[in-house]
């Protein structure tokens, strides 16, 4: 296929995004250059684009197999290209950390390589000029960074669901998945989808036994040849090792059910009237609802979510008159 300058939608530090002939789809070309420290360190590395496209494609497919919605459609015509569904991107970097490396050590004084008690999720605003600053929930709200259909708790849950799969995938290959960065977007229907790329540029991956660095830190810190490192990683990823996600584990969830907005809820109205009768006249809104605590077994948190959505929609709520919200976490997180 011939490309013209006009079909380039965006060109970033690592990728070029072109309009595909199919509407709603884009072709993402992975560039042969490496940058670090927000572009301060820069190098042209032939072959890197191809490796990153391959590794990203593999990891997107891994997530899709586990029912995580992603932008991934297919491998592209050339080896350094992937076909994505076009998403409206959320301008946040979602970082999941299992072990302390890099900036988190500087910011909070953690010892390099220490394991966190449970995976941490951090958010950074995508803004090169401001050096991608860390951002809090209230600041995300202030800036209106999230689409109306997406809550921060959903973003966090999805990041942890992805982490669970990556940790298991790399663990089965003797690799520690220490941390990684994700970027999300929404499709035309407002559904949350994982976007961006899943290359070693965005991960910290270490050999469990030798601590060998298998990610972009080799370039950041001049530790080894990037291409050789990425090739080693790809080879280990391609090994037909079974994913250690066949053991069911227990997840805790809460389902909140309440009347839909346009539905008269006589119970809430009666409680409100009673409050007024006893003098609490300052109460001018009240909505009664139900809360269910659910313990559920599933092989992954994403599988648990899929089951819970069905349970909440089919049984715990009546969609004709009620809406529900779902919270889901690892043991002890909720409930």
């Amino acid at each position: 296929m011939t490309t013209t300058a006009s079909d380039v939608l965006i060109e970033g530090k690592a990728k070029i995004v072109r309009q595909d002939t199919t509407a709603h789809q884009v072709r993402v070309i992975f560039k042969d250059c490496a940058t670090a420290f927000n572009g301060e360190k820069f190098s042209e590395i032939p072959g890197k684009g191809e490796l990153n496209a391959k590794i990203s494609g593999m990891l997107f497919q891994l997530l899709e197999e586990h029912h995580i919605p992603t932008c991934f459609v297919a491998l592209g015509e050339s080896a350094n290209e992937l076909v994505y569904n076009n998403l409206t991107m959320i301008p946040l970097e979602v970082v999941v950390r299992n072990h302390a490396y890099g900036s988190v050590c500087k910011r909070f004084g953690f010892e390099q390589g220490m394991a966190f008690k449970q995976p941490l999720v951090e958010y950074f605003l995508k803004n090169d000029a401001a050096n991608d600053p860390q951002i809090t929930e209230s600041m995300i709200q202030e800036r209106g960074s999230l689409p109306a259909s997406i809550s921060l708790s959903l973003l966090e849950r999805r990041a942890l669901q992805i982490n669970e799969i990556f940790v298991a995938f790399f663990e089965a290959r003797g690799i520690r998945c220490a941390d990684f960065k994700l970027e999300f977007g929404v499709d035309a229907q407002g559904v949350l989808m994982l976007g961006d790329e899943l290359s070693p540029d965005n991960f910290r991956l270490r050999d469990v036994k030798t601590a060998q660095v298998l990610d972009k830190d080799v370039f950041r810190l001049d530790l080894a040849d990037l291409i050789e490192t990425y090739q080693t990683l790809l080879k280990r990823m391609e090994a037909p090792t079974k994913l250690a996600l066949d053991q069911p584990r227990t997840y805790w969830a809460q389902v909140f059910v309440k009347s839909r907005k346009n539905i008269l809820n006589p119970e809430s109205k009666a409680i409100l009237t009673s409050l007024h009768n006893v003098g609490f006249t300052s109460v001018n809104g009240l909505q009664a609802g139900k809360r269910f605590e659910v313990q559920i077994e599933a092989n992954t948190m994403m599988a648990a979510e899929r089951q819970l959505l069905k349970i909440a929609e089919d049984v715990l709520s009546n969609p004709v008159i009620e809406d529900f919200e779902l919270e889901l976490g690892l043991s002890g997180g909720v409930s």
């Binding site: 539905i263 008269l264 809820n265 006589p266 119970e267 009666a270 009546n318 004709v320």
Partner: peptide, 8 residues
């Protein structure tokens, strides 16, 4: 759906 009588 059948919901609570308005009179409760």
């Amino acid at each position: 759906a059948l919901t609570r009588n308005t009179s409760l």
